[in-house]
Design a protein around this nucleic acid. Structure first.
Lengths: 209, 209
DNA sequence: GTCTATAACGGGATAGAC
DNA sequence: GTCTATCCCGTTATAGAC
C-alpha cells in the first residue's frame, strides 16, 4: 500500500483536466486546487506549466513510437490490424488534449512541433507498410497514387476523429469511444480489399459500430 | 475613392491575424497596433474581442449556409461537384482560425457551439444529397452503411484537411492551397464510382494534385 | 515536501478628454 | 471617431517560513 507520489498525482490530474477542459483553460491554480495542494507545492515539483505538458508529451511520444514500430515485412492478418487500430485510437484518446487545440498548444510549446511532426510521419509510414503487407498477401489491390491518398487519409483520421466525433455527436467530453474511430478507419480500407477480405472486415467492423 | 471604414478594417485585420497566429494568440492590442489605431478606438467599434469573433463567425456561417443549400433532386455532374468542393475548401480556409483551435474557441465563445454543429450537420447532409444524386444518375454504387461512413469522412476532411496539411507539410501558415484538399476528397469518392466516372475523376483530380 | 503570501506580468476593457 | 491613461483581473511563478 504505497502512497502515490505528489509528482505523479500532478501528472495524472493535469492530463485529466487538460483532456476534459482543454489545456489552455486549465490553470496551474486549478490543478493544485483539484489535488488539494498549494500552488507553491506544484511549482516545487515542476518549474513551469510547460514542464508538465512536456512530461505528458514525452509519455505520448513513447507510447506512439513503441506502437508504431511496425515490422517491415511481416504478414499482418486483418484482425491483428484492427487490434493495432484499437490501440492507436486509445493512445491518441488518452492524450487528446494535444489534438483539441493543436495549433495553440504547438505554438506555445514550440519545442514539441518537430517531435509531433515526426510522430505524424511515422503514422503515415506505418500505414504504408501495413498496406504493403496486405498487398503482398494479396488481400488488397490499390494503385500507388490512391495508396498515398489513403495513407494520408488514415493518418488524418487517427488524429482528428475523436475531436470530430465529440464535436458532432456528444456533449460529454470525458466519454470517448475508440470504437467508432476504428470503424471509420476500416471503412476507409474496405473498398481496396478483395472480396473475402471485405467480408471479413465487415464482420470485424460490425463489432465496432 | 471611398475611404474604408475603420470597423471593416478591424474585421479584416482581425481575420488575417487570427488565421496566421491563432485566435488565442492575438490580443486586442495587437490588432489595434497592426491597424495603427488606439486600443480605445477598437473598443469604440466593438465592445469586446468576442464580438469581433462573433462577426467573423456570422460571415462564415452565411457563406456556408449559402453554399450548402444543395438542390435536393438535381442531377449534379462531376465537374460541378468538384467546383463545389473547391468553393467549400476556400470558404473553410478563409476562416481557418475557427478550426485551428476549435475546442478552445468554442469553449470561450460558447454561443457558437450550436451554430457550428448545425453547419457541420448541413455539410454531411449536403454530401448525402450529392451522393444520392450520383446514385440516381447511376454514376455511383454504394451500400447504405458505407455511404454513412463516407459522408462523415468527407465532412471530417473538409474541416480538418487544411490544418492537417499545414501541420504535416508546410511551415508557412499563410500559404493555403485548397487544391490538395479537393484532391483528397475526390479520392475518397473514387472507389465507389463506376468505371467511366472513375476515369473522369482521375482526370479532374490530376489538376488538383 | 508543503505551506502562505505576494510579486510580476499581460490582456481585456473602461473613462473621459479631444 | 479617435486618443491617452488607467483599472481590473486572472495567471504564472517566486520567496521564504514551517
Amino acid at each position: 500500500m504505497k502512497k502515490v507520489k505528489t509528482r505523479d498525482r500532478i501528472v495524472d490530474t493535469s492530463l485529466h483536466l487538460f483532456n476534459s477542459l482543454g489545456e489552455p483553460n486549465v490553470t496551474t491554480l486549478l490543478i493544485s486546487d483539484e489535488l488539494e495542494i498549494s500552488p507553491g507545492n506544484l511549482y516545487y515539483h515542476f518549474k513551469s506549466k510547460g514542464d508538465i505538458v512536456e512530461e505528458l508529451f514525452r509519455a505520448y511520444e513513447a507510447d506512439m513510437l513503441d506502437l508504431l514500430a511496425v515490422p517491415e515485412d511481416a504478414d499482418i492478418p486483418l484482425d491483428q490490424f484492427s487490434f493495432f487500430l484499437h490501440l492507436l485510437f486509445e493512445g491518441v484518446a488518452r492524450y487528446r488534449f494535444l489534438y483539441q487545440d493543436l495549433v495553440n498548444v504547438l505554438s506555445r510549446y514550440s519545442q514539441l512541433q518537430q517531435r509531433f511532426r515526426r510522430i505524424l510521419k511515422k503514422k503515415t509510414a506505418a500505414f504504408q507498410s501495413l498496406c504493403g503487407s496486405f498487398q503482398r498477401q494479396e488481400m488488397m489491390d490499390i494503385e500507388p497514387e490512391a495508396l498515398g491518398a489513403l495513407c494520408e487519409q488514415l493518418t488524418l483520421t487517427v488524429c482528428y476523429w475523436s475531436s470530430f466525433d465529440t464535436l458532432s455527436h456528444l456533449e460529454d467530453r470525458d466519454a470517448v469511444d475508440p470504437g467508432r474511430g476504428v470503424y471509420q478507419m476500416l471503412h476507409l480500407l474496405l473498398p481496396y480489399l478483395r472480396e473475402d477480405e471485405q467480408e471479413q472486415v465487415k464482420l470485424i467492423s460490425a463489432d465496432y459500430r
